[in-house]
Design a protein around this nucleic acid. Structure first.
Length: 254
DNA sequence: ATGGTGGTTTTACCA
C-alpha cells in the first residue's frame, strides 16, 4: 500500500499535475493540502473520471484538504471534537483497514505572533485526537504538511533558520510530543540522501539552489511502521512548469 | 540589502 502526501497550493491550478503524478506513481492514497477550494467547487468529477475516489473538506481562498484513493474512503471525519477549528485543515478516513489522518498544520507566520500561538495550541489538540485514534486504529498513518522541520538535518541552513518559524524549539517539541503518542517518521526508518527536502520557497531561486526544508511528513503508528518498506521524496514535480512550492512525499507498506 | 514569487472571487493577505 503506497500512501502519499502533497501540498498542492491550489488544486484548481495543480489538478493536471496531480492526475499526471498519480498516473505515473500509482499511489493507493494521496493526501492533499492547500486545495483552496470550497466543497461545492471541488473537481470531484475530473478525479472520479480518472478512476479514483475522493473525499474533501475545503474553504474559500485558504487551507483545504482532500484524499484521493483507489478504494472508497470509510469513516470520514473532518471535525474531531478535540480540535474545534473553522479552518479546514483535517481529514481522516479509513482505507483497507488503515486509518489515514491528513493534516495541514498552521504555518504560524513568525515566532511570538498570535498565529504562532494558534499553531502550538492546534498541535496540542491534534495530538490528543491522535492519541484517541491510536486506541481505535492500531494501523494509523498521520501525514501532510506539518510546517515543522523535525531536526537540523531537515534544514538547508540550520544556523540561518535557528529559532525561526518552522524550526523553533517549541514547534519541534510539539512534534516530538505527537511522535511520542506512538508514531514513527517513516522517512528516517531508511537511509536517505543528505539534503533531502520537501519544500522550497518560490523566491530567490530556492529550488535551483536546494535551499529547502523537509516539512512534509508521513508518520506511521509503531505497529504499522514495522510493515513500512520504503519512504521517499519525489522531487520531480517541483521541477515542472508552474509547480507547487511543495513536492510529493510517500511511504510504502506491506 | 528586509528584497524576491506565487496564489487568491486579489489590489492585501497568506505562505
Amino acid at each position: 500500500m503506497k500512501i502519499a502526501s502533497w501540498n498542492v497550493n491550489s488544486l484548481k491550478v495543480r489538478l493536471p499535475q496531480v492526475l499526471q503524478w498519480m498516473a505515473t506513481e500509482q499511489p493507493d492514497v494521496l493526501a492533499l493540502q492547500e486545495t483552496k477550494v470550497t466543497d461545492d467547487n471541488f473537481p470531484a468529477g475530473e478525479i472520479r473520471a480518472a478512476g479514483y475516489q475522493v473525499c474533501y473538506s475545503g474553504q474559500k481562498t485558504y487551507n483545504g484538504v482532500a484524499i484521493v484513493s483507489r478504494t472508497k474512503p470509510e469513516e470520514v471525519v473532518t471535525d474531531p471534537t478535540q480540535v474545534p477549528d473553522e479552518q479546514r485543515r483535517i481529514l481522516a478516513a479509513t482505507f483497507n483497514g488503515v486509518r489515514v489522518i491528513d493534516l495541514y498544520v498552521p504555518n504560524g507566520k513568525a515566532v511570538g505572533t498570535e498565529s504562532y500561538d494558534y499553531k502550538l495550541d492546534w498541535l496540542s489538540r491534534i495530538t490528543a485526537y491522535i492519541r484517541a485514534q491510536l486506541v481505535d486504529y492500531p494501523d494509523l498513518v498521520v501525514l501532510g504538511d506539518f510546517n515543522i522541520a523535525p531536526e537540523d538535518r531537515d534544514v538547508h541552513d540550520p544556523d540561518a533558520w535557528r529559532g525561526k518559524i518552522l524550526c523553533s524549539r517549541k514547534e519541534r517539541k510539539a512534534l516530538h510530543s505527537m511522535l511520542a503518542t506512538g508514531l514513527q517518521d517513516t522517512f528516517r526508518l531508511f537511509e536517505q540522501p543528505e539534503k533531502s527536502y520537501s519544500w522550497w520557497d518560490y523566491r530567490m531561486g530556492a529550488f535551483r539552489r536546494n535551499m529547502g526544508l523537509r516539512i512534509d511528513l508521513v508518520l506511521a503508528s509503531n505497529s504499522l511502521s514495522q510493515r513500512c518498506r520504503a519512504s521517499s521524496i519525489d522531487k520531480t514535480p517541483r521541477g515542472w512548469e508552474r509547480p507547487s512550492d511543495h513536492t510529493p512525499v510517500f511511504a510504502e507498506f506491506d
